[in-house]
C-alpha cells in the first residue's frame, strides 16, 4: 500500500506522492472542500438577513 519514495531526495511531499494522482488529488481536495463550508456559512448569514445585499 505505502510505496517507497523513488526520488533523489525524499521529503514530505514526495512521500505524499503515493502512486499515481495521489498528491494532486489531496491538493485539490484541500482547495475545494472548504468551499462547501463557505457556502453554508453564507447561506446561514443570508437567511439571518444580517448582510447588506450584494
Amino acid at each position: 500500500m505505502i510505496e517507497p519514495c523513488h526520488d533523489v531526495v525524499c521529503s514530505f511531499w514526495s512521500y505524499l506522492n503515493q502512486g499515481p494522482m495521489t498528491l494532486t488529488i489531496i491538493l485539490h481536495t484541500l482547495i475545494v472542500l472548504p468551499m462547501i463550508w463557505i457556502y453554508f456559512d453564507e447561506k446561514k448569514r443570508l437567511e439571518r438577513g444580517d448582510l447588506p445585499n450584494e
Binding site: H6, D7, V9, S11, W13, S14, L16, L27
Partner: peptide, 23 residues
C-alpha cells in the same frame, strides 16, 4: 499551481509531474 508544468525537467523534484499535469 499550474506553474508545475514548467517544473518537469529543470532539476526540480519529481512530484511536480503530478501537480503540473493535473492543475
Amino acid at each position: 499551481l499550474g506553474l508545475g508544468h514548467h517544473y518537469f525537467w529543470i532539476g526540480t523534484p519529481e512530484y511536480w509531474w503530478e501537480i503540473g499535469a493535473l492543475f
